[in-house]
Design a protein around this nucleic acid. Structure first.
Lengths: 260, 260
DNA sequence: CAGTGGTCTAGACCACACT
DNA sequence: GTGTGGTCTAGACCACTGC
């Protein structure tokens, strides 16, 4: 590894035009190096990474610089710091908050009272991506994708219907049985079984009416307005790895969002 | 002001039971002091606060400690740092992103193309808070509140219908004329005219059908599903200062949310 | 106890904006 | 040039965890 003795990035060619100076602070470069190690799965979800001192020695910078890099990665929810114990790779499994990306909460506000969701896998099959799905997943039309349909119920009331599409390559071997067996968030299974860590996501929310199959699965009639939540989830490097279309009943739940 | 020479908070009574040691880092205390100055409007929105060096001298701590306090306040969007110029009190007015709290975007994704919203004040009146509104605004039932109803249209299409309630005390003098005259985000007017700065907000989102008056104002029929966005906005100290119920048409726009 | 992250300090230097 | 925030360093000490 090259020693980042000078905090300038980019090729050091003598006659680089360099319209932008492209200055990058040292800690950002360290952040990038740590990110590379995360992508390369040098440290796996749930494991601890080397101590700040070790990383400082490895990258030949001061502890403070490593600290600032880790601070940002922790802010992005890629790492979790635990005082006295170490810094750990964030994971969707065994995360005290299950369903980190699910923002539907009961109107009572009491997450614990309603207990865990009852999951039902309705369908899981392989098919060729149409243009829309291919575009969302950065694939080519006709590439194979895995399509899953499932229902989540709370206290026996079907509340969430989700259709999701995953790129066939990374998710080779995914089946309805595999999904049904796994307990815990689906993203936890993706980490454990397929080495795919969802890092961030974008959601587009609309109000819609259900079609017939949706009415049946959610036990609502044709005139019941539902929340349509279209999510694209990304791994490292902003690579899209999942398209998910959720339909949420909002008669006793609501989508909660904090603005700041 | 007391010199925060020791980084321990709380009353220094000799026989405090103190089940929890309640340790608080110095920079958190500094953050609290800066927050107090912000609440007291010692520095007004848009103005610059003293330099890090000045604040360090004032609070008798090192620049680095002030820096960390300011870092957190900037992270909370209460302050804005501008290299070479200074640190400024965040403001809703003249913020390059108008409508900081409005997450409805055109499906095209192109904010600029649709231009500014056409605002219509439908109603503005004073009335007594019912139990529900009083609870949301931390008032007593019967206290006077200002109720506003307005419509936002994009490219001539009415898209957002908002009903909002404000505590009568802080918003004495608010009128439909005042609202109509002001150009820019409503929260900018609240800052400039009433000294009320909205700092954060919570939103509850549901899918609903419109009643008759809502149909008329949004030019939709009874069966059109709409997004219901119920927002409580807070000033400093988590004091609720606004209850807002928005109805969004989502036929050519969607509510966008980034998860991480 | 040793090892980890967390805080605080002091000083040096860099990048940026205004004048 | 001067003043601002931004980066980097080095060292000291504190708080938490587990042996």
């Amino acid at each position: 590894m090259n020693t980042p003795s000078t905090p300038f990035e980019g090729s050091s060619g003598a006659d680089t035009p360099a319209a932008t100076p492209a200055f990058s602070p040292l800690y950002q470069q360290i952040k990038g190096l740590i990110l590379q190690s995360l992508q390369a799965a040098e440290w796996k979800p749930g494991e601890s990474i080397p101590s700040e001192m070790d990383l400082a020695a490895r990258y030949r910078v001061s502890q403070g610089t490593v600290r600032k890099a880790i601070d940002e990665l922790a802010g992005d929810n890629l790492l979790v710091r635990r005082q006295g114990k170490g810094t750990f790779v964030a994971t969707h499994a065994e995360q005290h908050v299950q369903y980190r990306f699910l923002k539907l909460v009961p109107d009572s506000g009491d997450l614990a009272s309603e207990g865990p969701a009852q999951r039902t896998i309705v369908d899981c099959r392989r098919l060729r991506a149409n243009a829309e799905i291919a575009r969302a997943l950065a694939l080519r039309s006709g590439d194979t994708v895995v399509q899953v349909r499932r229902v989540l119920a709370f206290a026996g009331v079907p509340t969430i219907l989700e259709d999701l599409w995953l790129p066939g390559g990374p998710f080779k071997g995914l089946s309805a049985e595999r999904l049904a067996q796994y307990h815990g968030p689906m993203y936890g299974l993706f980490e454990a079984e397929f080495g795919v860590r969802m890092v961030r996501a974008d959601e587009k929310i609309r109000a819609v009416l259900p079609d017939e199959s949706q009415q049946a699965l959610l036990a609502v009639n044709a005139g019941t307005p539902l929340l349509s939540v279209e999510r694209v989830a990304y791994t490292y490097n902003d690579t899209p790895m999942e398209l998910r279309r959720g339909l949420y009943r909002t008669d006793s739940h609501h989508y909660h969002n904090a603005l700041s």
